[in-house]
Write a protein that binds this DNA or RNA. Structure first.
Lengths: 194, 194
DNA sequence: TGAATGACAGAAGTTGAAATCTGTCATCTG
DNA sequence: CAGATGACAGATTTCAACTTCTGTCATTCA
């Protein structure tokens, strides 16, 4: 035992370590329990299933990005610049994760393939942040968007190549930055009031 | 033997049938040869490898879309309408293929994962068609695009959710049409001369 | 009494031997 | 002699026995 009492957070940290070390295909609940010096039954007291544990780890991992992006979002300046900074940060954050933490990223990718609750919330969260920026831009007369919610979703979809893990293989290609710029320039022009 | 002489085209058709029936994971060169009533050595006289055969089948299959899209592209009317019709047709064609021919579509998806020559040409071809429409629009004063090639690539990337097989799982979702419309409206606004 | 355990059943994954497949090529055939 | 064949080596896949894992729960422990 690492300590007298076993907490949800301890389990999450241990699970994250195990996932990082072995990857989603090899990591087992028994491994996590062993890392904590407890029996695997104890892990099941805190999480109903291995899937739930995996999801909780991924959720915590994704929240790092949310915090970072929220900071960019609330920084001052024109909405266009903030939108660009936000998208650019999202791309950079995802790319960094894919590179720095390939095993956790693989866990995240597996989760995407399962249409999980956690991913849906992650996406809804991101689109919500986009919507705020766009609404701000409309309020300030910088953007024209009859339906900011739909516009936010459209911006999210149009930049999907630069944040969806399905395209992570492209993120190392030369020229990807230019392609991101071209897409984002097109989008900004599309939002601008004419 | 199906006939006195074995042609490349006969092999392609037989291979397509076999792929359709068994899927890319199960289809073998021996199956193809058996379907033709020849030895598998004869197939290797026309194709250097199983991979080359798979690629040739996929290429032929993808060309159907090219022909269809070329027709849309050269139809009259304003560039904006043609661009929308083109994108819309591409989306519809891909979705139809994914639904009607799941096994051939799986073959195509596997090919995408291998960064093949055929896919690169397919993409270059499509972006080329886009570029023509955009250049036309610029010439007619309808669009503003300093670099039509880059703009074409940006339009292709921004609509990737609606033509890349990695997202085929989303194509059956309710609301996908609206999402396509929202993205495309954003893009058209971004291209329009102001 | 609330948290932890570990034995257990059924599911999932591993392993290694056997079967099949890919790609080559010397030989055959019309 | 161009085109087809089928035997062959090495690579890959299949299959079934075996191992490990997941999730449950009656029991133990503090």
């Amino acid at each position: 035992m690492t300590d007298g009492i076993l907490t949800r957070d301890q389990i999450l940290s241990a699970a994250q370590d195990v996932l990082r070390r072995y990857g989603p295909a090899k990591a087992t609940v028994v491994d996590v329990a062993r890392a904590l010096g407890v029996s695997h039954g104890s892990v099941y007291r805190h999480f109903p299933s291995k899937a739930a544990l995996r999801e909780a780890v991924t959720q915590r991992w994704l929240e790092e990005s949310h915090v970072l992006l929220a900071a960019v979002m609330t920084s001052g300046g024109p909405a266009g610049a903030r939108l660009r900074a936000w998208s650019s940060s999202l791309f950079a954050a995802k790319r960094k994760k894919a590179l720095d933490d390939p095993e956790l990223f693989a866990t995240y990718m597996a989760l995407v393939g399962e249409a999980s609750e956690v991913i849906d919330r992650h996406v809804a969260d991101l689109v919500g942040q986009l919507q705020e920026i766009i609404s701000d831009g409309v309020a300030q007369g910088e953007f024209a968007a009859p339906d900011p919610a739909s516009a936010a979703r459209a911006v999210f979809d149009a930049t999907i190549r630069f944040h969806d893990p399905a395209h992570a293989g492209d993120w190392g290609r030369p020229g990807i930055e230019d392609e991101f710029d071209a897409v984002h320039t097109l989008i900004l022009a599309g939002l601008a009031r004419r």
